[in-house]
Simulated scan of single mutants.
Amino acid sequence: MASELQRRKAAVVFGAMDVDTDGYLTESDFAALARRWTASRGLPPASAQARRLTAIMMGWWETLLAASDDDGDGRVTLEEVLAVVDGLAADTAPVVMTADAMFDAVDEDGDGRISAAEYRQLIETWTGRPTDTDEVFELLDGDGDGHLSGDEFVVLWTEFWAGDDPNAAGTWVFGRFGSPLHPV
């Protein structure tokens, strides 16, 4: 059973992905997120970059749907997401696969690193609002070089999805949120 911290982390991401706020994640939510992401970068919808970002988002949807839609209704509830989270500590391979894809999507300039600006864009795209991410980025950037490498991102992403440690930097990979276990 998911801990309170895991529930809160999953709820934060679920709420951001549930674009139409109907309480379910659906293919249309992920398509809307892809449109928001490409628009935030000023990409024409038919451009190669927009198609790549859309493919990554829709691939994540397909992976999530396959892993969690137990009732086969084409929608995913928070409880279904939490059931998947329960099994991630024993098998992190699915998390690593999505981490690699998300890293590629966030690394806008393709330099193999995520900058503070690219990270801010990720968070603002997910939340749909301007967000101060400087403090969190410093926490995530454990070696202090001003960037997140692919390897660093995989660790952070795995700590977020499969971890239950409020002191792990990856707990905050989607930004700060209130937690009774770790005050903001």
Rank of each mutant, 00 (worst) to 15 (best):
D141W: 10
P94Q: 07
D86V: 00
S3A: 11
G110V: 07
R35D: 13
D86A: 06
L53K: 14
W172Q: 09
G150V: 04
V136F: 02
L33H: 13
W61T: 01
F137W: 07
F14H: 02
I56H: 11
W172F: 10
L139F: 04
D165E: 10
F153D: 05
G59W: 06
V106D: 06
G72A: 12
W161G: 03
V13K: 14
A117H: 09
T131N: 09
G112H: 07
R8C: 06
L64F: 15
G146W: 07
L53E: 10
T133H: 09
R36K: 15
A89L: 10
A99N: 02
D104C: 03
T131V: 08
W172K: 08
R120N: 06
L181V: 04
G163W: 01
V96D: 02
W60L: 13
E108I: 10
S179G: 02
D86C: 04
A168C: 02
A10C: 14
G74T: 10
A169L: 01
V155T: 12
V155G: 07
D69F: 13
A101Q: 12
D22Q: 01
A46K: 15
V13L: 14
T133P: 03
V95Q: 05
V96G: 01
V95L: 08
F153Y: 15
G110F: 08
V13M: 13
P180N: 09
E159H: 11
A101E: 06
L25I: 08
L82C: 02
D69N: 13
V19A: 11
M97T: 12
A34L: 11
G72P: 13
T21K: 15
D69S: 12
L25Y: 10
E62L: 10
V96F: 04
A101N: 07
L53F: 11
M17K: 14
E118K: 11
R35T: 03
V19S: 06
A48S: 14
G150H: 15
A162D: 05
A83S: 12
Q49A: 12
A48C: 12
W60M: 13
G112V: 03
H147P: 02
A31Y: 01
P166L: 05
I114D: 00
T92H: 09
V106Q: 01
R52M: 15
E159F: 07
R75I: 02
A55C: 03
A2K: 08
G142P: 09
M58K: 08
V84K: 11
R35M: 11
A16N: 13
A2Q: 05
A89N: 01
F153V: 01
H182N: 15
R35W: 04
F14E: 00
A169C: 07
M58P: 05
L181R: 15
E4D: 01
A46W: 14
V13N: 09
M97K: 15
L148D: 06
T158Q: 10
R36L: 13
L65C: 08
